[in-house]
């Protein structure tokens, strides 16, 4: 058991100071801006909750929220199971699994603004490696909504699968062989081994994967925008695209109100998630 000592806070001070400057201060500022109409930084007027009311009542906001939630749900339900499957596959290779891990980590080090360029190059109907075949099969990511969605989801999966694999593999490779041997003697099914031995071991890693993937996919910007600029016909207009437009249009007060709403939304989801994890930990 760890000793109780409140002087430990002294060791947290540098971290708190740093996060205060780059996190807490800007956050308070953005919330404050959200209640103002900002023409220039010296010409600021209090407007109360007007922006918030406008945004929450607009149909476009609700439609974008729906699209972003759907995108996150699809991204998570593809990437998490697929990542676990790849990690299970790699665990079976023993020491050589390290090469598979390195392979999966490769897309993580590609600059984010180049990822859509790589994929656009790949599916280019004239010069891409797979583009001509896709075009022959009738794939048209520019004008068919679900094709654009498929392309963005595939790209996002390519980008982030490695994170799921690396973190899930970490949990799986720490399982002592005796557990699996005991299960084999008991004649446990493959599913039973996964459900009762492997899943509990990777739940901590999966929790952080779920949270990180939720926030990043919910707030996807550069990648989705570069592919088709929100099109076709607004079909891939996610929440961040509207925020980007307002910042570009110098509508800072409204942009800040919108940013505050997004932050509160993310916060609510994370909070609910943490409460749920703590509850399962306590009952377990």
């Amino acid at each position: 058991m760890q000793p109780h000592d409140n002087r430990a806070w002294l060791l947290l001070l540098p971290a708190l100071l740093l996060l205060g400057v780059v996190g807490a201060l800007p956050l308070l500022a953005v919330i404050n801006y959200g209640f103002h109409d900002i023409f220039t930084l010296s010409d600021v007027q209090w407007v109360g909750v007007e922006w918030f009311g406008d945004i929450l009542q607009s149909d476009r906001f609700l439609a974008s929220l729906g699209r972003s939630l759907l995108f996150s749900a699809l991204a998570l339900s593809i990437q998490v199971p697929l990542g676990i499957m790849v990690a299970l596959l790699l665990v079976g290779f023993g020491r050589r699994a390290i090469w598979g891990l390195m392979l999966c980590a490769l897309p993580l080090v590609v600059p984010w603004n180049m990822i859509p360029m790589l994929w656009l190059g790949l599916v280019d109907a004239r010069t891409g490696i797979v583009g001509p075949w896709l075009a022959a099969a009738g794939f048209d990511w520019k004008f068919t909504a679900w094709h654009t969605w498929a392309l963005i989801l595939t790209m996002d999966t390519w980008h982030w699968l490695g994170l799921v694999v690396v973190l899930a593999y970490a949990g799986l490779s720490a399982i002592p062989p005796a557990y699996r041997q005991a299960a084999a003697i008991d004649g446990a099914s493959r599913w039973a081994i996964f459900r009762h031995i492997e899943l509990p071991r990777i739940s901590g890693a999966l929790a952080i994967v779920l949270l990180l993937r939720f926030v990043d996919s919910f707030m996807i910007y550069i990648e989705a925008f570069t592919i088709n600029a929100g099109g076709p016909d607004d079909a891939t207009r996610f929440l961040t695209l509207e925020l980007g437009e307002e910042i570009k249009g110098f509508s800072y007060g409204q942009a800040a109100a919108r940013a505050t709403l997004y932050f509160l939304f993310v916060l609510a989801v994370v909070w609910a998630f943490v409460i749920a994890t703590r509850r399962t930990e306590e009952t377990a």
């Binding site: 996190g23 800007p26 801006y33 910007y221 910042i247 800040a256 997004y262 932050f263 943490v274």
Partner: peptide, 22 residues
């Protein structure tokens, strides 16, 4: 621990404007 988790999941776009001004 909860506090650092909140900062980890704060979307960068949310903070970009005040960060620039600060």
């Amino acid at each position: 621990l909860l506090l650092i988790l909140v900062f980890r999941v704060t979307p960068p776009v949310v903070l970009s404007l005040p960060i620039f001004i600060l």
